[in-house]
């Protein structure tokens, strides 16, 4: 399909989701990198130690080291920057709108009238970078909107804003 059909249809016919208005904090990149390193580095480190201390099996461990280190470093280099380009959020008087992911990207819209709870949470690594996450849940177990990597102040304000709006509107369609 792609370009051919797109150019043939009249403009205005086709729509797409525009990105939400606000980016997350620049610091989130560092946070994601740290998080990625927690997953990606332990295995190569183990192989590196084995490589150093067991000379007879050096070729084996050398290859293992390369095979685990290269994808790990690639992941650490690519994922955070890519996420930073995608992760965005926005609220209006009627809805919360957020985008997340990198290879798999997702956009979520939840009307404020359906919001049940608004939580703020900070994991240990997020705290290191002074970041916070906000989770907005609805009566649907699958419907939570998670906005991560916000500044603490921004997150607090966001929670306040959402709480204000959602308190006013009853009914959650259970």
């Amino acid at each position: 399909m792609g370009h051919q059909t797109r150019h043939q249809t009249r403009p205005g016919d086709e729509v797409r989701l525009r990105p939400p208005r606000h980016r997350v904090e620049r610091r989130a990149v560092a946070w994601w990198t740290t998080q990625a390193s927690v997953f990606a580095l332990p295995l190569p480190i183990v192989f590196a130690v084995l490589y150093l201390f067991i000379p007879p099996a050096r070729t084996w461990f050398g290859w293992c080291l390369v095979a685990t280190l290269v994808p790990g470093l690639l992941y650490m280099a690519v994922m955070p920057a890519w996420r930073y380009r995608v992760h965005r959020w926005e609220t209006t008087g009627e809805a919360v709108y957020a985008a997340s992911g990198w290879l798999w990207q997702r956009w979520r819209v939840v009307p404020l009238s359906r919001v049940q709870t608004v939580d703020m949470l900070r994991g240990p690594i997020q705290q290191m970078y002074g970041l916070s996450g906000v989770t907005v849940t609805t009566a649907s177990a699958a419907g939570a909107v998670k906005i991560k990597g916000l500044d603490r102040r921004t997150a607090t304000d966001l929670v306040e804003h959402l709480t204000q709006y959602t308190q006013a509107t009853p009914g959650d369609a259970t």
Partner: peptide, 18 residues
Amino acid sequence: AASGGAGGAGGGSHGGPI
């Protein structure tokens, strides 16, 4: 998301986005 560059909430100006 990358090309738009729609005004960042990030950094300095707090209370801005809300």
